[in-house]
Design a protein around this nucleic acid. Structure first.
Lengths: 115, 115
DNA sequence: TTTATATATGAATATATATTCACATATTCA
DNA sequence: TGAATATGTGAATATATATTCATATATAAA
């Protein structure tokens, strides 16, 4: 790939300039990763719901009309990325947002979506 | 699914309250959609690069070390969502960001990633 | 202790999608 | 016109992942 490009049109200065200014790959990969988490409507719905109020798995299941299992699987992912926290009360597990940061991101997405 | 939930634990008031406050499904789907676009490292790299400077396909290919074809496919997606614009100069097609809005979103993602 | 219920999870399945490959198109230049 | 080059794109492939199903775990209640 690289050697092919040597003999093709490439504005080397431009490429070098941008390369020096760009964030490292690892960071950009992390950026894509967080967006990938937000890039699923079930997870967006869960996060938006939890932004309004603490809810249990069954509530979320009823609210977004999806099986408990599916909700649980998605909550697992959201937990893994520290986007939600939870507390147990007997059999019931209540989920809420880990912090307000995620909502800021989603709100920007909403702005974009509404355009 | 719905009737199963009738006989299970559901805090109906909570669910109704949140449901009334939530954005409609169509909007949330659109939100997830824009995040899905940003949820790929190749596309994030392309957008971050274009945020610095207008670049052609071959430049992008060399910069992020991926085949022309792959870049072209991703640019097609970014074009479809009006995230990038382009101008032709002879054989060469120069791409740039459609607007600064996307970068705001990515910058928030970077903030999150750097935490 | 037995039963019922809320949640979690592994495996299977179905679907989406990123990349590659081959080829098409468009433009420049000899 | 014909060759070279930059980009675009359809099909195939490989991989990721969302959901379902079956089952496990944990807690409460009978």
């Amino acid at each position: 790939m690289k050697d092919v490009c040597e003999i093709e049109y490439v504005n080397k200065e431009a490429v070098e300039e941008v390369k020096s200014k760009m964030l490292d790959d690892a960071t950009l990969l992390k950026v894509a990763e967080i967006f990938k988490i937000l890039g699923d409507s079930t997870r967006v719905k869960i996060l938006c719901a939890l932004a309004k109020r603490e809810l249990c798995v069954c509530d979320l299941s009823a609210l977004i009309n999806i099986s408990h299992s599916a909700v649980s699987h998605q909550l697992r992912i959201l937990r893994a990325y520290n986007l939600v926290k939870f507390r147990k009360e007997g059999k019931v597990v209540y989920y809420s947002l880990a912090d307000e940061h995620v909502i800021k991101l989603i709100e920007m997405g909403i702005e974009h979506a509404k355009e």
